[in-house]
Amino acid sequence: MEEGSTANGHQPEEESLHKEIQIIEAQLAAAKAKLQSSGSSNPSPNPPLQNPTPSTQHAPNPPQSLHLWLLLADSALPIGSFAFSSGLESYISHRTLRHPLSGPKKPTPRSELSRFLRLSLLSVSTTTIPFVASAFQTPSSAPELDDIFDATTTCEVARRASVSQGRALCSVWDKSFVHSLLTQINPTDNSNSSSSSNNIPHHHRPDHFGVAWGYITRLSGADSLHQVLFVFLFNHVKAVLSAAVRLSLIGPYVAQQILASEETQRLVLEAVERGKGISVDEAGQCVPTLDLWQGRHEKLYTRIFNS
């Protein structure tokens, strides 16, 4: 903390002002949270610092939003994602068989993994992401979306993986999150988005992971579709990389390196954009080999994952 000691006095002054604003904002948020948890249902009367216009839906409450995403992006979230490799295990088994050691360009485990990651993100973006987006945007249609997704997911292994994680996510919601997340965030939601969020049926529990993700994030008061999709896909990448580490394809440092890389970020962003532009009725598999690999997972002689 050496503000003021630099020659140029203008910038440090601005900086310290920014810091002050941050501190005051954090205090404000804390005070608001206190007020809400103490039972008052009305939004607090805004102090002069806060923008009083009703367009609060565009300015998410940062601490709450951050809190939510840290919860949902946590690898320790008990939905059992560690048990699934999304087809990676089967893919690797098939590929090593296909390409004998004497191939012209022998693929390395890392290049195989990068390729799989790319194909997997492409496939998820055109099959699952449309359903995540739709469940988030119209949570009232979650039951129908769940049924359509069930009819659309024709690979038995992928279905099991999706249902298992979807149901687990709903259990976590019911058992752990519903008390804090639903009550804490919904009041502010109600105040700005008219009656739409009042109509969300709170009782339905989707089976499939993608639909459950869209639905639960909406119930939790997430306000940005982009974030909902980004975190879903980022979690997918993490699950695949974690599986790759346990399959001894890469080490943990390389896994983090891939996760942090610009390429991964770009692939995830592209997948978000691609998936957003596809309606539920246009969704479809665009990497047909992936369905085969994943479907043949149960034919592996030894396997450590469920998919």
Partner: peptide, 22 residues
């Protein structure tokens, strides 16, 4: 009621080869 939907989409332009080389 929709019982089953099997959809396959092959699109040469979905991933730009310039970016991914595939």
């Amino acid at each position: 009621k929709l019982l089953l939907r099997d959809a396959m989409i092959l699109d040469s332009r979905v991933l730009s080869p310039a970016n991914d080389g595939e």
